[in-house]
Design a binder for these strands. Structure first.
Lengths: 193, 193
DNA sequence: AAATAATGTTAATCTTGTTTAACAATTTTT
DNA sequence: AAAAATTGTTAAACAAGATTAACATTATTT
């Protein structure tokens, strides 16, 4: 059924018995969101860890000048949440908004506690997911310091070709930390090479 | 004894029995490093998660042009490792080098597996630590996009006054992603305000 | 106490990327 | 099919920060 992609994803990390899978499923809420809807809003407490079953979302921060800065995109088989808000259950710094109609498998803060006590393997699973996310985030910091805007764009295009097809270009610019005008310039330069 | 700061740190997250503490201690290696020594070198596999008992270290990346980019500093009561390398046991992208004579409590990859099986609470502890690290890393990305160099410097100075006292200014510049000359300019501007 | 190495400063010039603004192309709505 | 909204492009003027190079200061070693 609907949760198949999540179960398959989990099976890459740990093995679960049928009973465990039943229990796991009882702790998950599947929810649909329309394009434009918010999963988390800056200032609210992030109450869930979300696995994307279908659709696409952006995680972004609106700064003091009202400018939007995209931290990450999430598509099928990715996780999304405001981790800082979730772990401390304090107001979120980030917004998570759907860029397409989407379907999410959601683990609430409380249900995760219960899940981890009953199935310690699930704690291992989440630890491993978060380790990966942390490592990826550190590498992103390094790229933003050591690569030019053009190099970062090429890296993004190579790493996430599917994402570039699905989102407007000005959001790619925001993700890369440059203006849409400059990205446009980079692309026209590249097309002449 | 030596591990007291680590045990105190852990007790903020979980409670351990005396037996558990004994077992934990049997899985930790305490090691001294001299100023200048490397804990991890780019290209080697990062084999440990390290808790800083004393001293100070920098985690940095050397790019294709030979330029050094500091990802983080670690002082007493902080953790350090190349998470990406550690979790996949593949060659590290980062170097970790001591800026002072230092003492580290080290958990090897293998010993952590054993530790987690025997004391599942320790897996919870590490999950929580990594969640925090991940959240901090995401916030750093946002700062690097939404703040000017001057604002980032002021933030660093406010957040980590102890670190600024202990390391040369050109390393602060590297951490902020700017040149030492420009940081010098920022500081002279600030002194005139 | 010199000598050397490491760290920090200043200023001129250059580069990368921003801002502004006008316009073009594409989608979506009516 | 027209109108409106969203997205993308171009170019000129500008600003933030890099580079270069010369020099000043502070630590460290001899």
């Amino acid at each position: 059924m609907k949760l198949q992609p999540l179960l398959k994803y989990i099976s890459n990390y740990i093995d679960l018995t049928n009973e465990e899978i039943d229990f796991l499923e009882s702790k998950i809420t599947v929810r649909k969101y329309l394009k434009g809807q918010y999963v988390v809003q800056q200032g609210d407490v992030c109450k869930h860890q979300c696995f994307v079953l279908s659709g696409c979302m952006k995680t972004f921060y609106v700064d003091a000048e009202g400018q939007e800065h995209i931290v990450m995109f999430s598509i099928e088989d990715w996780w999304t949440s405001d981790m800082g808000s979730f772990v401390t259950q304090t107001p979120a710094d980030f917004n998570i908004q759907c860029l397409e109609n989407s379907e999410l498998a959601m683990f609430s803060y409380d249900s995760m506690e219960v899940l981890f006590s009953r199935i310690p393997k699930m704690e291992r699973f989440f630890r491993q997911i978060i380790e990966k996310g942390f490592a990826a985030s550190q590498k992103r910091i390094v790229r933003s310091f050591s690569l030019s805007a053009k190099e970062q764009y090429l890296y993004f295009r190579e790493q996430y070709p599917e994402i570039e097809q699905r989102i407007p270009q000005y959001m790619v610019a925001s993700y890369l930390g440059i203006t849409k005008e400059f990205l446009s310039k980079i692309k026209s330069q590249l097309s002449l090479e």
